[in-house]
Design a binder for these strands. Structure first.
Length: 740
DNA sequence: TACATACAC
DNA sequence: CATGGTGTATGTA
């Protein structure tokens, strides 16, 4: 901690901003954002402006809190390191070297993997349709910028930046409305071209991995020639430019794609030397899976680049159990070696684990408004589940308090109770929310810890629901050779009546007017596109089981084609399926695999259960039991708002709450649009849309022969971490279906 | 199972 | 005035 002595106050009451905060608030030094080049404003200027505009916001305060907590972590880590060094045995480097040697043996330079990334994709899509925009400074999206054109980036505007801040940086900045159809169309065009060069794995609307190995062999061309042709063809046929990175694995290609962006490429030769040389100087933050926290921790003990991992391998070894998941020792060593996964494979329908919807609104404490948000969210989620034909056992409520601190609360009605209907979701969502609201004052009175400040009245800025422990109704139906649609849609409805008497659901009808664009029949043009995409994306039989709805556990456990992905990453990981290719499949190798095909640590994740494997005879929802369970757990009736205000007063807090509530619970940003594939509504986020729509593309893949799925694998690194994955070695399922 | 955190896009 | 939404993975209890 030793924070620097305060400097002279600069304009206003604020003291000198901390460097970590400047960085946190998205200064141009954020390496991940890849800013730089040809800026009109200096980095300092941008940071200063952003800081000035941000510093009094609640968001900023929250970021400061996180920053402090992170500093504490760093200090702790430093302390541990110092302590470990006192008792070090001196063989730490040897230990690390032994692992390096082990990892080195898994190196596979045989494949040609490319990562293609469109340049300022959303902005480019607009320019394509409206050439006038060329060179102009504009942003796409309302409240939050989804993308900034290169013209705007020169001023420091970046994606994920709130528009009002971007405007401070670039006063003449223009904001364009999101037009999803535009992006989806362009994306499909791009992917269509990519597919001509090999199998692809979309990571988002504008990014995909392509396996060029076969293409290079067939055409007898070098990787450089292949990627040159590919990029030229994309530009010629779509009018959009893309950047690319090519190397023997996804890890390196991802980083390489950034090197000559925009409209450039970087190819790493398939030699150990080239791979290692390339990655040595790379800043840790540039590596997939190393986020701000991990970077900060590593910086704290003196590492800045990938090369430093080797230099400081003894240090890393000493604190290997305190690095957090994202910086797992083996993962870092693998990174240093330039290893990475090299299989390009699309995710399947069955890989999905949760469905969720969340909504931000202007912070409110009004119980009625909060209830309404739950209803809206539940409605949207129910629609998603129905359309996708999934149901789930666990419902998780997320509450983000007004101060940006969030909590989650989950409920699983019962072992065999699978939910998908609106009323069930609302009931559970409201139950969880009310419990939270009601418990809060008690906890505070008792002096216990609570998130979101000490006010007994809960004030939220976001509510969301997520359903997990999914079951693929479609696969199930198919496996049972039943008429899935009939069975599914008629089943879960009846028990709803049981809940109709519940006080909470009475106002469901209110909902219908106020929201939801169920108007599937709205825009004819959009409808046509929907149809096309839906057909392509949601093959009713895809993944439904090839006659085997469930996968036997043993099979699943041994499928090397694990769902791997970069772990920690959300949608990203989802698409990056696979595992580091390694043909040396023996027991020993198994112990060694993990994120890079290397298993980290001693923990071997257990094969996760296949959800489609439950006996189909179970009903989707056992109506009466659900209703009963729900009632049993239902919280006492809530106090009136007036009573809650009274509590607030006790606490000494004012009642200006009233005022705020007037307009509360309105969407924070007016920017809403609908996914052309499934009609899901978004609030205006490039990433959300990207991740979401890309999944439809992922689903697109036809069922590969009898396939076994696995789960767990993933090695990841990320965020959370990386997990180790375990892949078993023995079976190489290259195709043959197995199963008994 | 329940919850918190980290990460990606 | 003011900072999103969807999803995955992991550790820990």
């Amino acid at each position: 901690m030793a924070s620097p002595a305060p400097r002279l106050p600069v304009a206003g009451p604020s003291s000198e901003p901390k460097a970590s905060m400047l960085k946190r608030m998205g200064g141009p030094s954020d390496l991940k954002a890849g800013v730089g080049r040809g800026g009109i404003r200096t980095a300092e200027e941008i940071q200063h402006i952003v800081h000035e505009v941000s510093k009094r916001s609640k968001y900023f305060k929250d970021q400061e809190r996180r920053d402090r907590e992170l500093q504490v972590k760093v200090d702790k880590l430093k302390g541990r390191l110092a302590q470990e060094e006192l008792t070090a045995r001196g063989d730490e480097e040897d230990k690390a070297d032994a692992i390096l040697k082990e990892l080195e043996e898994t190196r596979d330079l045989s494949r040609v993997i490319a990562l293609i990334d469109a340049d300022a994709f959303y902005a480019a899509c607009h320019v394509r349709v409206n050439p006038e925009l060329e060179g102009k400074a504009f942003g796409v999206g309302g409240g939050m910028l989804t993308t900034a054109s290169y013209g705007a980036r020169k001023y420091g505007c970046r994606s994920a930046m709130p528009f009002f801040i971007a405007q401070k940086l670039c006063p003449h900045l223009v904001s364009l409305k999101l037009e999803p159809d535009l992006y989806v169309k362009a994306s499909r065009e791009i992917f269509a071209v990519l597919s001509k060069y090999g199998t692809i794995a979309p990571a988002s609307l504008d990014e995909a991995y392509v396996d060029l190995t076969q293409y290079c062999a067939d055409q007898d061309v070098t990787p450089t020639e292949a990627i040159t042709r590919l990029r030229a063809e994309v530009q010629a046929t779509t009018g959009l430019t893309v950047s690319a990175g090519v190397s023997p694995n996804k890890t390196l290609s991802k980083i390489a794609a950034d090197v000559n962006k925009p409209n450039g490429q970087f190819v790493i030769d398939p030699t150990r030397e080239a791979c290692m040389e390339f990655i040595q100087g790379v800043r840790l933050r540039k590596c997939f899976g190393i986020g701000r926290v991990c970077e900060t921790l590593l910086n704290g003990i003196g590492l800045e680049t990938v090369g430093d991992i080797f230099r400081d391998r003894a240090k890393l070894y000493l604190v290997r159990h305190h690095l957090g998941q994202s910086a797992h020792f083996r993962f870092l060593l693998g990174l240093y070696l330039g290893l990475g996964r090299n299989r390009v494979k699309r995710a399947k329908r069955g890989d999905r684990k949760t469905y969720g919807v969340e909504k931000t609104f202007t912070p409110t404490s009004d119980p009625g408004k909060l209830d309404d948000v739950i209803r809206r969210v539940a409605k949207s989620l129910a629609k998603d589940l129905k359309r996708a034909d999934f149901s789930g056992r666990t419902v998780t409520l997320r509450i983000k308090h007004a101060d940006f601190v969030s909590v989650t609360r989950a409920h699983t009605p019962g072992k065999n109770i699978y939910l998908r209907d609106y009323k069930d979701l609302v009931r559970i969502g409201l139950m969880l929310l009310h419990k939270e609201i009601d418990e809060r004052p008690k906890l505070i009175a008792r002096g216990e810890e609570v998130k979101g400040g000490r006010n007994p009245v809960l004030k939220a800025r976001l509510l969301g629901l997520r359903v997990g422990n999914l079951r693929d109704e479609r696969a199930l139906a198919k496996a049972n050779k039943l008429d899935g649609w009939v069975r599914v849609s008629s089943r879960s409805t009846p028990e709803i009546e049981l809940s109709d008497s519940d006080t909470d659901v009475q106002r469901d009808s209110d909902l219908d007017d106020d929201e939801d664009e169920d108007d599937d029949e709205a825009d004819p043009g959009k409808r046509a596109l929907n149809a096309v995409m839906r057909d392509a994306a949601i093959d009713p039989f895809a993944d439904a089981g090839d006659g085997e709805g469930g996968v036997k556990k043993e099979d699943a456990a041994c499928d090397p084609a694990a769902f791997g992905g970069a772990s920690g990453s959300g949608s990203g990981s989802w698409m990056c399926v696979d595992d580091y290719d390694n043909d040396a499949e023996d027991e020993d190798a198994e112990v060694v695999r993990g994120r890079f095909g290397v298993h980290r640590g001693a923990t071997v994740p257990k094969p996760s259960q296949r959800r489609a494997q439950q006996p189909s005879s179970s009903t989707i929802v056992q109506g009466s039991s659900l209703a009963a369970a729900s009632r049993a757990g239902s919280p006492p009736k809530r106090k009136s708002p007036a009573a809650e205000d009274a509590s607030a007063n006790e606490k000494g807090k004012k009642r200006r709450i009233r005022k705020e509530e007037e307009e509360a619970a309105k969407p924070a940003s007016g920017n809403e649009w609908t996914c052309p594939v499934c009609d899901k509504v978004f609030a205006g986020s490039e990433a959300a849309m990207s991740g979401h729509v890309a999944k439809h593309f992922a689903d697109d893949e036809p069922p590969a022969r009898p396939k076994v799925k696995v789960k767990k694998e993933c090695g990841s690194l990320g965020g959370g971490g990386m997990g180790g994955s375990k892949v078993s070695s023995k079976t190489k399922v290259k195709g043959k279906g197995r199963k008994g």
